[in-house]
Design a protein around this nucleic acid. Structure first.
Lengths: 224, 224
DNA sequence: TCTAGTAAATGAATGCCATTCATTTAAAAA
DNA sequence: TTTTTAAATGAATGGCATTCATTTACTAGA
């Protein structure tokens, strides 16, 4: 977690022109939006719904936020704040990566619509994300990794995490053959065997892949 | 590739009521939509634009397609048809996985908006996808993998592929520190070292991660 | 204390979108 | 020839993000 960066953009000078209800600011808007998302999912997040939840007209929001896309970035920052990157200071790299990845994926599984956004957005807009990268990179450096190999390793892990977060939102019966039952014998029998283990498919896949990618990266790394 | 499944849903009986211009059908609509996407990206894909490109009114489309979402699934099927899964019949599993993953990711990098859709959609709606899974699963089976470990391995790989496809669409300067230059020394120096190699960051990360996850999976597998 | 300036709110547009529906058309079946 | 019916039309509908002219009331300066 990370709270110290809360009062980021200078004190919000009181200058309202309609004191009824609230004086809006970035933080209020972002938190109201996140609340709506948590309560009803991203499909319920509209500029109108945010405005309503703040007792304000939709157009009022635009005095504080450029666009809905920017609002989504604000939400992303708050969500990203929930990812624990402190483990890199206490655990060996491979264990730290595993813990970090698990919380990262768990948190974004609840915020899948943010993922296509994050994957493409400049990190300069998100100080929390930057702090996270710094801690992760420091972990790699401390473990003696060659500088040029650090960023690719982080990006690869993040890609796996984002992909897995998307996958975590899939319905359980996503692989059911439907019409074509019997036409994919190998896959269907593999699926049946997996199901017989009683384990959640998405979680098992994530842990399997995570162990594999971490082990593989550690193996390939040229430690200086 | 795979063309044989083209005439999927029975012959399109001629029954038109407005022969001017075209008689619509699933294939025509899907291809027109894909053409628009290739030409101008997903932001240009609207029901109106598809209708216009077919010389037809928007409402006409709804005699053939349930929703825009369904149209996107049709596009996804065509795109998926470009993924080459035949390698599993000729190459050892690890090499086949690598080739398959590379084409899979390359193709979907150009269709990022489909990814959140696919990740969540029942495969029963997409025979091409089912065929792909069958071939991949058969590859694992042939290599002697324990049944229950096959699906998790496939899902993990696919998660990595989708995440990497999203990442491939990111701008090159996505990691630039901006305002906070100097506040993330470890990360910035790692980034600089990566850049000095002259290699594309997304591609390097993908190949690094891919080798790692494949090697890691092979290592963990209990071969019967 | 008065006045001017201004950030912030309002609500009425605007324009784009997917989607629906009553109606019409013309090909196929009888 | 008549009937049936899939497929097309174009005019709604409703939801959405976003813009804008206007108003409000706090703050700063005289």
């Amino acid at each position: 977690m990370n709270q110290e960066a809360a009062a980021q953009a200078g004190a919000p000078r009181r200058r309202a022109g309609r004191p009824r209800s609230v004086v809006l600011d970035r933080d209020l808007i972002a938190r109201a939006a996140l609340k709506l998302v948590v309560a009803g999912g991203y499909s319920t997040l509209t500029m109108s719904s945010v405005a309503k939840s703040l007792g304000v007209s939709p157009s009022a929001l635009y005095n504080h936020v450029e666009s809905k896309q920017e609002l989504m970035q604000w939400i992303q920052e708050i969500v990203m704040d929930g990812v624990d990157s402190s483990v890199f200071e206490t655990l060996p790299l491979d264990e730290a990566l595993a813990e970090w990845a698990v919380t990262y994926r768990d948190i974004f599984a609840g915020h899948a619509p943010l993922i296509p956004l994050i994957a493409v957005l400049p990190v300069s807009g998100s100080p929390r994300t930057q702090e996270m990268y710094e801690k992760v990179a420091a972990g790699f450096t401390r473990a003696g990794w060659k500088q040029a190999e650090i960023v690719p390793a982080i990006v690869a892990l993040e890609s796996f995490i984002f992909g897995s977060a998307l996958d975590a939102t899939a319905p359980l019966d996503i692989f059911d053959a439907g019409e074509n039952a019997g036409k994919m014998p190998s896959f269907e029998s593999a699926l049946e065997a997996q199901r017989a283990t009683g384990r959640n498919s998405a979680d098992t896949a994530f842990m399997t892949g995570l162990r594999a990618i971490i082990a593989g990266l550690m193996d390939q790394a040229e430690i200086t």
